[in-house]
Amino acid sequence: MSLLRIRNLSVDFATASGKFRAVDQVDQDVDTGEILAIVGESGSGKSVSMLAMMGLLPWTATVTADEMTFDGHNLLTMNTKARRKIVGNDLAMIFQEPMSSLNPCFPVGWQIKESLRVHLGLNRKQRHARAIELFEQVGIPDPERRLSAFPHQMSGGMNQRVMIAMAIACKPKLLIADEPTTALDVTIQAQILDLLASLRDETGMGLVLITHDMGVVAETAERVSVQYAGQKIEEQRVVPLFDEPHHPYTNALLDALPERATEKRLPTIPGVVPGQFDRPAGCLFSPRCKFADAKCKAESPAPQSDALGRARCFYPLNTDQRQAS
């Protein structure tokens, strides 16, 4: 059985202008030791689906699902108190903005030791030793001195390492990394991704990597789930996905990769992800899809078979009938 199993997850936000579906019937599985990437443009509900699983959404959100289990625990029926024992312990998450994700009023060491005390009940000496060990593990030089530093005294890359150290403090079984490198510069991005991958190798934890960068996916992920406007529109292992994408949206994302560009200018996907007010009737991608026909604009496609990457498309690409342009 998989470590994380989500079936038919939907999230609705109550907004001033009515209900808004940010996540729409998403299935997700993550196995122990596996790296799953969730990709999609901004606003496709990647963060919200994982925050829903963590129980971190504001009260305006309504979460519904047929199934949501983590490590044998039913997250749907679990009360807040029981969930708090798991969250931050077996199930950890790091975020996009390392600078603002750490509390400016407390030294970073204090923030790490807090987790160690709350979840593992270590004493003062053990906490200190473990914090130093963690800092070494995530490659923070001079850990003894850095423990007493405040977030504003360190760089973004160092702060993200602190966040990672804090997340893996209790040896989680699953780590969700929500765009962990977006706010960092390119060389640091690669270091952080390497760090995450090597931590996975050392600890055997599952890793969910949320990103909108297909390059990151190619380098790090093993399996890829593509989300669009709240829906999961395709899922494949990373090599077949890059070779034979089935959904036109995945195809378009791959075409936008610099190394695949045939012209001088990068091809972009025209249009934007539909928001609350401009959701189209049929397939959500139809207004931007160059293959869309009348049926696409009228009916909402159901996922195809596993062999076709469960693509939500009436006319999947790279099949016997149809080759990508």
Binding site: M54, L56, R83, R84, K85, I86, V87, G88, N89, A92, M93, F95, E97, S100, S101, L102, N103, P104, C105, F106, E114, S115, V118, H119, M163, M166
Partner: peptide, 25 residues
């Protein structure tokens, strides 16, 4: 703020989050 979300992601109790992490700021 983001760091409050972090505090919640650490599985801290509401009292700790509000009374220490938020109040201090």
């Amino acid at each position: 703020e983001d760091y409050i979300r972090t505090a919640r992601a650490k599985g801290l109790s509401t009292g700790r989050i509000n009374g220490i992490h938020a109040l201090r700021n």
